[in-house]
């Protein structure tokens, strides 16, 4: 891997390479460049995950001419495809270097350290939603119980915006969650379930199921489960699988008529 990066940088195929470097034993994101080739020796593969594609996106916003190499997991590749589909990055400016990684609904098979054991203690079990498994598992609970449990989870929110800030596919310049007309300011917890459901709606047809939001959440809200559900609805209703095509999701653009039926009042 180090050799590939060195070759890429030396040959001028890329100007910069985003990867990880061990600093005091911690793998942190680092930008390798041609000028400091000796640093490539410190390039490391690890379990640490940061949204490198988000950093690349921000760099491209500043300098659209720069060519960037990325150390990319499967989720990174999916979000690169999503960002390209939404015209946020130019694929010609990005080169990905694949590394092995994690299992997810968005692909068939993989190996990773993430999502091994369900982390459900007694309080979580009696009050909250499980953070792993299928989103439809909770259907066994009556509707009111599901609602109560989600409100419990959402009320833990301290409105740190960590889920949004870490999200590799959150690229809007103006965020609805910070808009004064849409959301009350200066209140913790935020209005629930509005705050989280709005974010969930925005994730539909866009979420790459990387799970960084849930890792970033300081109070352990099972956000990945929620976004998995909204993505699942988009897949079921519109047959769209995020990160597997170059098209934008039909849920988010006007497009042609989808043959959906109105639900009846008698159901």
């Amino acid at each position: 891997m180090k050799d590939i990066v060195r070759t890429w940088l030396e040959s001028g195929r890329i100007d910069l390479f985003l990867g990880y470097r061990l600093v005091d034993g911690h793998p942190i994101p680092h930008c390798f460049s041609k000028e400091r080739l000796e640093e490539v020796e410190q390039l490391t593969e690890s379990l640490a995950r940061y949204p490198l594609e988000k950093i690349a996106h921000q760099m491209l916003q500043k300098d659209p001419a720069v060519r960037i190499g990325l150390m990319a997991r499967d989720c990174t590749q999916r979000s690169v495809r999503v960002l390209a589909a939404w015209n946020q990055i130019d694929m010609d400016r990005i080169r990905v270097l694949t590394m092995s990684c994690c299992p997810s609904d968005a692909k068939d098979k993989a190996f990773c350290s993430y999502l091994q054991e369900p982390e459900t203690g007694p309080v979580r079990k009696s009050n909250g939603m499980p953070s792993t498994g299928d989103p439809d598992d909770c259907r066994v609970l009556p509707a009111e119980e599901r609602l109560r449990r989600w409100l419990y989870e959402f009320q833990k929110c301290i409105k740190c915006y960590g889920c949004r800030d870490i999200c590799p596919v959150c690229f809007c310049k103006d965020c609805g969650l910070e808009h004064e007309d849409l959301m009350d300011k200066g209140v913790v917890p935020p209005e629930v379930p509005l705050f989280h459901l709005i974010r969930a709606v925005h994730m539909a047809g866009r979420c790459v199921d990387c799970g960084l939001c849930e890792e970033a959440c300081p109070v352990g809200i099972p956000l990945r489960l929620l976004y998995r559900k909204v993505n699942g609805i988009v897949t079921d209703r519109f047959g769209y699988r995020v990160g597997q095509t170059k098209d934008q999701s039909p849920f988010n653009v006007l497009g042609e008529f989808s043959p959906l039926e109105l639900s009846s009042l008698d159901d």
Binding site: P135, D136, C138, R139, A143, E144, E145, R146, L147, R148, W150, P193, L197, A200, V201, A204, K229, V230, I233, V234, D236, R237, F251, L260, S263
Partner: peptide, 12 residues
Amino acid sequence: AFMEDLLNWFGL
């Protein structure tokens, strides 16, 4: 259609 699915699942 999307919102109906989401709200049904959510408990409304």
